[in-house]
């Protein structure tokens, strides 16, 4: 990236502090997407252990059935739920659904596209992800 363009760069792109909950959702969407991609690659490696037969599979299962493994799995559950729920919100928004209708703006110009429906969608995605994560932790550590 040429220096003279004065781009904010990735640091500016992922900074969630300046533009409200929408920008937090934007960051979480990217982090959860990358996390799920990493999990997907790891999952392919994990399931490929079946080729080592029953003993190899059981050895690998034993290796990942640790408290650390359970915590990673619960984070994966949270990422999956957030990415799904927020993804539905974003896809609807991309289709122009729930972004408001054009109208003459009045001061102080609150943007109609950043309305309560989308804010509820974001908070719901975070809440559901937290609940699913706690449920996952309860199942995995509950025995």
């Amino acid at each position: 990236m040429p220096q003279d363009e004065h781009k904010e760069g990735i640091g500016g792109m992922i900074n969630p502090r300046r533009y409200g909950i929408e920008r937090v959702a934007y960051l979480l969407m990217r982090l959860s997407g990358l996390g799920l991609l990493a999990y997907f690659i790891g999952h392919i490696y994990e399931t490929s252990n079946i080729l080592r037969g029953q003993v190899g599979w059981n050895d690998f299962m034993e290796m990942i059935s640790t408290p650390e493994g359970h915590i990673i799995m619960s984070i994966v559950i949270a990422m999956c739920v957030f990415h799904t729920v927020n993804g539905v919100r974003v896809m609807l928004g991309h289709g122009g659904v729930g972004v408001g209708k054009p109208a003459r703006p009045d001061y102080p110009y609150d943007p109609a596209s950043q309305n309560y429906r989308h804010k509820i969608g974001i908070y719901s995605a975070i809440l559901l992800a937290a609940v699913a994560m706690m449920y996952g932790l309860a199942v995995m550590f509950g025995e």
Partner: peptide
Amino acid sequence: HFAGSCSQVCPKGVDPAMGIQL
């Protein structure tokens, strides 16, 4: 990606995010 920051800073109430999504 519909982050909406453009609409939050617009000093004239244009709401670019709405226009782009529509």
